[in-house]
Design a protein around this nucleic acid. Structure first.
Lengths: 215, 215
DNA sequence: GTCTATATTAGGATAGAC
DNA sequence: GTCTATCCTAATATAGAC
């Protein structure tokens, strides 16, 4: 594997584990058993390295969020979709850990990051629209807007929130819990079908999470 | 005013404005027209300064969150209560901006911060319990738990989320929007009264926010 | 491409005079 | 209590040999 790629991979791992601010270029070089000089040969500076990782994330998440949302409405399908979104975020979670500082230090990224939030917003809106069209739910414009905002906020900060409360937990557990929380937001709108929906959501959550939580 | 207090006040202002990581002890001294040496006479280090500010916040928010929640159920009253909670957070918003780094750097604070989240959880739970007792709503244990989690997450990250999307906005606008989003979470559980509730929430939001947003 | 050695800051912190 | 001057350290970054 090319050194350049190894640097990217190791940086990402360290950033996610220790936080970007707490990871120095020397740390990265040490972990790779290369010299700091070598690292700087491949990346002119830490900012370039971060920008590159951000671009990777940006491409991955954009592709996922732009996927067509006209898929069937089964609870399982929606669950899976949201899981994939969270998973991609989890792989680059260092970006979310200290967002404000990061975006303040690299203003270029702020614009691009905001675009990703907008994409999330669009994806969730489309998701809700699909439910509305299928007449599963009916909400006023304002209700829908508030709900979508709340879902996007959760989608953006769930990993931080979980980390704040539990420090380290198995990724699958964290992510499934996040999907569960998202699903719980739409449940009360389902009226008659609310109980059924909850049963399904709970059973998915428990079946998948029980083994993961045990280990 | 004593120098010690002026230091605290100015530090808080700069931290909130520029971020704690981007504010040096020299910045603070300059802003106050005192020497860095003088600052270090009053506070042994930046960490002591931050710890002191945190203690201030901790006391303020604890008092608010521990206030009895058996008050009447009028939408206005609840609105006011949540506003006060957000306001106190806003005054010390630098703590929330880069939570992970801050808590990683000052592990002592992590424990105390988590306690505050627990208090929020208890306050929101009690709030919901009051509604249940008044038979305004009825939810399963699980639904209630998920809802409360979602509300606490919003209460914790709303200021960050708004800042991410809008950079700088008038505080009253930010906070009222936050309360509105919180209220929108409980609305769908109100069934029959949902429309009424929404009307009230919307009118409060608009009446208060319209002038603030205009300026 | 990779290394060793070193330069450059910036920021936190202290000593000692007043 | 306050100032000036200075130290120390950690982190980014570069020069030049191999």
């Amino acid at each position: 594997m090319k050194t350049r790629d190894r640097i990217l991979q190791t940086s990402l791992a360290l950033f996610n584990l220790e936080g970007e601010a707490n990871t120095t270029t020397v740390d990265i070089a040490n972990e790779l058993d290369i010299s700091p000089g070598n690292l700087y040969y491949h990346f002119k500076g830490k900012d370039v390295l971060i920008a590159e990782l951000f671009t990777q994330y940006e491409q991955g998440i954009t592709e996922i969020l732009n996927a067509p949302i006209d898929r069937p409405l089964s609870v399982e399908d929606n669950w899976f979709y949201l899981y994939v979104v969270f998973e991609e975020m989890y792989n680059y979670r260092f970006l979310y850990r200290n967002l404000s500082d990061l975006l303040a230090r690299y203003p270029e990224l702020a614009r691009r990051f905001r675009r990703i939030v907008d994409l999330k917003h669009a994806a969730i809106t489309a998701f809700w629209q699909t439910l509305s069209d299928a007449a599963v739910v009916s909400t006023s414009e304002e209700e829908a807007e508030a709900l979508v905002d709340n879902m996007v906020l959760l989608l953006t900060y769930w990993l931080n929130y979980d980390h704040l409360l539990h420090e380290e937990r198995p990724p699958a557990l964290i992510i499934h819990k996040g999907v569960y929380q998202l699903m719980s937001m739409i449940a009360p709108y389902l009226g008659e079908q609310q109980r059924d929906f909850y049963e399904q959501v709970r059973s998915i959550y428990r079946n998948i999470i029980a083994p993961a939580a045990a280990k």
